[in-house]
Design a protein around this nucleic acid. Structure first.
Lengths: 207, 207
DNA sequence: GCGTGTGAACCTCTTCACAGCG
DNA sequence: CGCTGTGAAGAGGTTCACACGC
């Protein structure tokens, strides 16, 4: 389904709806309204309806949205019906901690591999996953590129790691590295910038 | 300086400018233009000028912005001229990894304490910082509330931890916990949601 | 009556283009 | 002449309010 022109903000909210729906489903709730979702996600109910209506007519007027049905649709939109594999590049502090923390509570993701270039670390097992050398990347994930790489390499090694990933066909990267990285068109790159989050909090404290 | 009505987006970009300026300063660059910042931060030069002009006239027409001068001003806006302390609540995988990774490359932040409720963990030293019991929070940080708390407690314990922090005067929280949390007015709460980032990447891969 | 889906109004943020200063 | 600062135009997203279907 190409050519959808929905904003990142909408997708971000869909992710929240999905999380909320999984919880509702686990609690035995069968049907929810836009107001239900709006209160739990901190969004106006009109926004919830707009977001959902952008992809089809999922609701039943007068009652609301069937939880399992809506969740299935959102999963299809996000691609989490068959979630991509998640691999970690860099088995340092953060990389190891991510694997040990797991991905419970997410849309079905799980870590399938972790890589490092340090010979002392290669071969260790972290949360049941063996650390592999980075040049084994191709063998492990294949070339279909249907996976997400989380980047947790040391400062200064980000771009080199990205280049390696891209050359192996990777198309989605989440970087914890505090450096601006370049990727070619067709590869999506996002950042988790602790530094910026702290700046935002620091600023808001003096307002 | 109260009552400034600037958007979160602007503040987020200021954080990027600051990082870019620190690097420029370290490289010996004395003056930069809005185009310089725009290229390195992936923003239009007009946006850069608008962002900066919102707080005063920092630039010199015909030449640009003096690096040290501009950085000083941004630091003052963000509050990073005297950065608040950063404490970590929860000495599990992520909390420990954050301390061990440190805060190099940020606007001068550093971790000043880490807390946990598990007696087996209390007393250990992580990156030179001793894990304290959570009820020692008041003694350690005082009651002025001028610090940022990073929340890395296990799922299900988020709200309890937040309540404790708030009751001790904490006014800024960055949560790694995948739960919606409630805070009273006057307390700022932000999330790092790995799950949502993965959803965004997953979605963009199928477009 | 209740709640969705949706055009219209509203608001915010971005981009454009240029005046003005060094 | 170069680059900042800024009104004006444009784009995008949110809220409002109501028609329609259950």
């Amino acid at each position: 389904m190409p050519g959808k022109k929905v904003s990142e903000k909408t997708i971000r909210r869909l992710s929240h709806y999905a999380r909320c729906l999984r919880k509702a489903g686990a609690d035995g709730t069968g049907v929810v309204t836009s107001k239900y979702l709006s209160e739990r996600c901190g969004i106006s109910s009109a926004a919830v309806r707009k977001d959902l209506a952008a992809f089809g007519e999922f609701g039943k007027q007068g009652s609301g949205y069937e939880v399992s049905d809506l969740l299935e649709n959102i999963d299809r939109i996000l691609g989490t019906c068959e979630p991509p594999q998640v691999i970690v590049i860099g088995a340092g502090n953060i990389g190891s901690a991510l694997l040990e923390s797991g991905l419970e509570g997410t849309g079905g993701y799980s870590y399938s591999a972790i890589f490092d270039k340090n010979p002392e670390i290669i071969g260790r097992t972290i949360a049941g996953v063996t650390v592999q050398p980075v040049d084994k990347l191709g063998e492990v994930v294949g070339e279909q590129g249907n996976y997400i790489a989380i980047l947790t390499v040391p400062p200064g090694e980000g771009q080199r790691a990205v280049n390696g990933l891209v050359s192996m066909g990777c198309r989605a990267i989440l970087s914890f590295v505090l450096e601006p990285l370049d990727v070619p068109d067709g590869v999506v790159l996002r950042y988790v910038e602790l530094s910026t989050e702290l700046d935002l909090l620091s600023h808001s404290m003096r307002s």
